[in-house]
Amino acid sequence: MMTTTASSDSTRLSVIQRLRQIRLGRWCVILIPMLWLAAFFFIPFLVVFKISLAEAMIAVPPYSPLIEWDPSNAYATLKVTFGNYLFLFESRFYLDAYLSSLRIAAVSTFFTLLIGFPIAYLIARSGPTQRTILLALVILPFWTSFLLRVYAWMALLKKNGLVNEALMAIGLIDQPLQILQTDFAVYLGIVYTYLPFMILPLYTTLEKMDMSLIEAAQDLGAKPWRAFCLVTLPLAKPGIIAGCLLVFIPAVGEFVIPALLGGSDTLMIGRVLWDEFFLNRDWPLASAVAIIMLIVLVGPIMFMRNGNKEAM
């Protein structure tokens, strides 16, 4: 809120001058971050869209120009192809990749919620000192390198890794299991690395919750489980939604986890895009993959923006 109070001795003119200065300065302050974000966040999507309509070719850069300029008769032709999109829709492979990414992200999000909720709930109900310590324990992994936390699981899950050794030591299995390079390892990796993103918004909502409501429900004869379902869950809804979206949206496009923990048959769209770009060097097709992914995710992203006003 920008209100100015003119001191009693200032003339009318100087007030107007000051307001004009403020208005100018105000727009400068607004425009600096706005222009940066427009240039490096928004316009890039337009460029991706443009290139998704081009054809791949062996050139620098490796795609056909959108407008072809013929200098001999000053004639410009617009060359647009929807071939990349048609290719994506016709090929079973890409459709499967999208569906399997959505499935992997959804299942992982559910398990992240399942593991994250008790932690967030316990922290919200702890005393002040214990709360700070427990919160720090959640925040620490959040700040620790994502890549290294994924890597940590490689050592645990491999054939002669700790998990297999432990399972064999207690006699559950007598042959090492193939855990690394399976879909299971990918689920595990996503749940593990994204867990803090679930716990923190959940905690923020649960912390504000009035615990006496649960007591009231229990005093009125509700069993703890019923009180949880009828009171706690509805009140925690904004946090649950925020947490789930913070996990689900980036997980759909995840690359590092399927690349390091997944098998060669683990199909995720982020990895497909990476390979299309770095291995096949098909920039237009990679762009089309990105645009479709963006369209799929735009709904959840908008939903998150509206939701996080209350949750965060």
Binding site: L37, F41, I51, S287
Partner: peptide
């Protein structure tokens, strides 16, 4: 524009910036 980069899959951000 301020909240979207928080959840935008990195492959999309990376590709779009490179093409820019």
């Amino acid at each position: 524009w301020v909240t979207a980069p928080l959840v935008m899959p990195e492959v999309i951000t990376g590709l779009s910036l490179l093409l820019l």
